[in-house]
Structures are given as structure tokens and as C-alpha cells.
Design a protein around this nucleic acid. Structure first.
Lengths: 125, 125
DNA sequence: AAATATAACGCAACTTAGTTGCATTATGAA
DNA sequence: TTCATAATGCAACTAAGTTGCGTTATATTT
């Protein structure tokens, strides 16, 4: 089950995602919000926002968890149908609004796929 | 720099990768080898085998590091040019011998990309 | 507006992945 | 056999993420 009460903490997190097109790592979120809420609360609210299809998560290059607002992604199934891009220069991570086609894999049942791309973003080139 | 001395521990690890087509997580390796070597040693040898282009690493679904023998992959650049597949049923992770084409991303410089697929493998279907 | 059930929060303690520093061991060259 | 030093083991540490439990605050009911 997802969010049932609009607490201060929930509103704060929703506000961050509303005003941010880029993805944010949990570590950064916890640092950003350390004066306002406990890290346990951050993790718990993120879980619920996932359930509600408000945000989606993915694993970054170093193995850290990142979260981003759901837009064109089909969050009902929690599949990441778009790639995620991390810029080596500025460090920012973003959802790319393109879809990718999986290579043909005979005899396998594909449930979900995540594509993570590392490079230099348009701002830093 | 990579491996310079053929120690017992290095031979043990090389032997594991030689006799295993599938990928192995560091956690499983450490568990498997706990009687034979320290976990610090496992991490250090894996780093060196990466430098030598003997194995490549990638991040799995849960954020854990996985390692697999290099075969058709171009390990000079340490780019994962092939997808990795994890089976929901048996849990095994393997390198898929297919190449995938990235979606066109205008204005971005792509350095590396990793594709991680979750589903059910041919053995478990 | 007060009462109240309980969802949500804070805190501390914990688990687990991965790293670091340093003393000790063992490899391979001289 | 000697010996320099690469490599290992160990313990202590950092950091991400989780759990349990007592307390707080939301939103519904009275």
C-alpha cells in the first residue's frame, strides 16, 4: 500500500520531485533533508511513492539507488522502459525520453530491462 | 597494474572463472572461498583481474557487484557491450552473447552502457 | 471542537557491502 | 639460499540500507 496521509515529510518529498526533472540518489536526498527528516523516513516514503507510481527507482553505476519522477514510464509494472543517463562531468543523472528495443533473446522470458548509459551530457559538451 | 605473482589465491579464483560460464556475485565468491582466503583478498584479486581483462564486472538488480569471465567482450575499454541476464526463478546471472544497439541520443556523448535484463531463463521455462 | 484509532515518524541499534592500514607471509628473481 | 617486495590476513572502519519500538501527528468520528 502507498501513501495514505499527507504528512509534512511526504509533502516535502513530493515537492522535490515536482520541481526536479533530474533523478536524485537516496544518499543525496538524505543529505539534503537531514535537518527536516530522518533517513528511515526518506526510505519509507520513497517505497510508498514507488507503490503509488509517483516515482521509479533504478540502480546507478556505483550500485547506489536513484529515484526520479514518473512521467512517460509505465509505472504500473515498474519496468524501466526508458534508459537512464549519468554525466561523467557534472554527475547529474536523468531519464532519457527515448525507448529502446531489446535484442532478440531466444528461449528466454523477459520481464524487465534497465539500460544505464554513462557519458557526457549536452550541457557539458 | 594487474596480477604479477601466481599465488594460491589467484590460481583458485582463476580456476573458478575458467570452470564457470555464469557470472558470480562478490558476495557468493566470498562465501564460497571463506575457508580459503580473506574477503579483502577476493576484492583485491578481482580488481586486478579486471585490470588484466580476465573478468568484467557489472552491477546487478539489487546493487550488488557481479563478475564474469571475459570472452567476446572488449575488455580493453571495460565497456559491457553485451547484456546481462538474471533469472527470477533460479537466480543465476549470465552474459548474453548478443550485442544491443543504443537508442539515438542527440547531443550526448556516450562512453559506456550496461543493459541488465530480468526474466526467466531457458532452463527454468 | 474534543476524542481517538492508527498511520507515520524518530531514534537507536543492527546488518551487510566494501575499504583501509599495517604487520606478516610467500613468491620469484638474483 | 638470500632477499626485495608483492600479496595476504586481520581488525577496524565507512557507508547503505533495515528493523523494532516507543512517540507523534493525521484525519476520521463523535
Amino acid at each position: 500500500m502507498g501513501i495514505t496521509r499527507q504528512t509534512k515529510q511526504v509533502k516535502t518529498l513530493l515537492n522535490i520531485f515536482d520541481n526536479n526533472e533530474k533523478a536524485i540518489s537516496v544518499v543525496d536526498l538524505i543529505k539534503l533533508l537531514e535537518a527536516q527528516m530522518n533517513k528511515t523516513t526518506v526510505y519509507r516514503i520513497l517505497d510508498k511513492l514507488m507503490d503509488d507510481g509517483v516515482v521509479h527507482s533504478f540502480v546507478g553505476k556505483g550500485g547506489l539507488k536513484w529515484y526520479a519522477k514518473c512521467q512517460d514510464c509505465s509505472c504500473e509494472t515498474h519496468n524501466d522502459v526508458h534508459p537512464h543517463f549519468q554525466c561523467k562531468t557534472c554527475g547529474e543523472v536523468e531519464c532519457l525520453s527515448v525507448s529502446f528495443t531489446l535484442p532478440p533473446i531466444n528461449g528466454y522470458m523477459v520481464e524487465s530491462a534497465s539500460l544505464f548509459i554513462v557519458g557526457v551530457c549536452s550541457n557539458c559538451l
